[in-house]
Design a protein around this nucleic acid. Sequence first.
DNA 1: GGTGAGCGTCGACGCGCTTCGATGTGCGAA
DNA 2: TTCGCACATCGAAGCGCGTCGACGCTCACC
Lengths: 351, 351
Amino acid sequence: MVTLADVARHAGVSSSTVSYVLSGKRSISTPTRQRIEKAITDLGYHPNAGARALAGKRSHIIALVVPLHTEVYVPTMMEIAISVTVTARQYGYDVLLITNDEGPEGVRRVAASGLADGVILMDVRLDDDRLPALRAQGTPAALIGIPDDPSGLACVDHDFAAAGALCVDHLADLGHRDLAFVGYPPRVYQRHAGYAERTLNGFRRRAEQRGLRVLHRPCEGTYESTAGTLARILADRPGTTGFVVQNEGAVGPLLSLLRTTGRTVPEDASVVAICPDQLAEQYAPRLTAVTGPRKELGQVAVEQVLARIDAAAAGGAAPDDALLLLAPDLVVRESTAPAPRRVTTTEEPST
Amino acid sequence: MVTLADVARHAGVSSSTVSYVLSGKRSISTPTRQRIEKAITDLGYHPNAGARALAGKRSHIIALVVPLHTEVYVPTMMEIAISVTVTARQYGYDVLLITNDEGPEGVRRVAASGLADGVILMDVRLDDDRLPALRAQGTPAALIGIPDDPSGLACVDHDFAAAGALCVDHLADLGHRDLAFVGYPPRVYQRHAGYAERTLNGFRRRAEQRGLRVLHRPCEGTYESTAGTLARILADRPGTTGFVVQNEGAVGPLLSLLRTTGRTVPEDASVVAICPDQLAEQYAPRLTAVTGPRKELGQVAVEQVLARIDAAAAGGAAPDDALLLLAPDLVVRESTAPAPRRVTTTEEPST
DNA sequence: GGTGAGCGTCGACGCGCTTCGATGTGCGAA
DNA sequence: TTCGCACATCGAAGCGCGTCGACGCTCACC
């Protein structure tokens, strides 16, 4: 193992000089700097992470807490995780993977031991039990998702309300008057996943503004459950022509089922999915879809934690809480079209 | 921050005694041990990771290198990553997430800096460029996947050859004589992903043994490309009744296309997928599928690295290389049935 | 030509922990 | 009673790096 002292000896300087070259915290004359840099590459020196963490009081590691359950769409989660990792590297940080099976204790352990300088939490629940630990320890943190009480914390998320509204606008512009929202399984709403609720709220509010009638139906996402969900929608509101789906598992079944019940998409029924573009492209017809920027989510989260880590190190006061909602995009593809002419109208929609 | 010395003072012993209680490397009398343990919980002591790594020459971290490209089925990768993390925790280790965009340099950096004690590589290529760095440094490592030259390395993987053979056996037992293998996109074979090649080899070899005729067709996995692939298969070998699919994206399109070309599954054509059970259950009909044990893959990989880390610490010689292939399972569902009676046979299959 | 400022460099200390050799205690065997 | 041998505990020496205060040199300026 090559140490700082080896490099210093090789370059004919003291070890502190080498340290200052590495950190840039004091000015070093160009010739000595070059001599030291040459020694570093010659010897293949890599600073020892443990010693650096001990002396510098910074591990240059941030912990990423990922959910265990598979209710969220895994590729999206992975994309965020990767974006977090890549972004962190750009700032000289590495990422430690923490699974949620340790619960709040995991966060506490990692922060208290100085293993990680900060924490990024994914899949934040409205009443998340990891937040008290974070606040109590004053651990620099960023949440991906929004809890009930975001005070003092940095929260980053898609603007799901805007996503819901975007769907309504698109369908309303196409002349649809009766919309159905096929959502996540009931347990997702029950455990207060914020994104599900906020999408729904944005959807409902905009629908009300634009005078559309809406139905919300949670759905397990299997073929059978989707069949049941669709049957109930068509029974309750036979004139429904616009479907908004926020449930990756239900999309495929829904398309098949619409087809087998004699409705072609998009001529007879329009479908807007709230899902990654990658998924939307896979279906036939390709889906008009609303997507949030996943990579940016990870980037912003990292920048938020790092800002808080720096603030804490500078002894600064607790930084302001931040609530960053990233705007979604709607991409029009082949699954939406103007509403069909109404043949049988039982009642007029409310204004 | 609470330190070892604080605990020692609180318990009225020297700090080395506390250290020995923590590590268990020397016997401590029961009363003092209990006093120390009480002090630890009273004070909420967490050993400082950096100091521990520095003094103990072990970071208790293993690095997990994950691929960036999305050609592999992400949920499976995630499942393995999570299983690695959970298993590592059971042994007192944490997991550092490394993306492949750093290339071989990432592995070198993490190992040389002592950030990680060992490395687990996912998505190993036959001629993987990260392996020279590993061997040169003697970094304890486990690969998930098998390279060209696995000598001196621990390799863990599904037994893909057995998976391919399992598909053939199942279809052959049902009386199918002409099989088609719908595989990954050409670039997967071109970059020598071992799993793709080995599946194909196992498939071909067993088919030859059992006297079946086979066709292999790479496939992009989109709807259009699958349509093209199927059309070519049926043009080349109209009597094909057994399909083996190893391409998650192609499964859905294939099922639809078989249906729309007038073949019902499983009466007219049988389909076996090589994919996670979770996916196989999502289709209609539910798919007969071959799956490898993902969780076990992560577990075994962790145990292999840890064994090598311990061996290296004990100054032991380089441990034997290990090549661990985990047996897959075939679950019969609704997509396979006895081959239909042959109506038009142009030629006999070769024995 | 002397003075002060500022830049570049050095030496030493400490971060919190592990580990080794040494010390002290109690016991059974001689 | 004495010797020796476990066992239990202690003290001190690092592990490799960051950082602070100090020192010496150069240069502009009076």
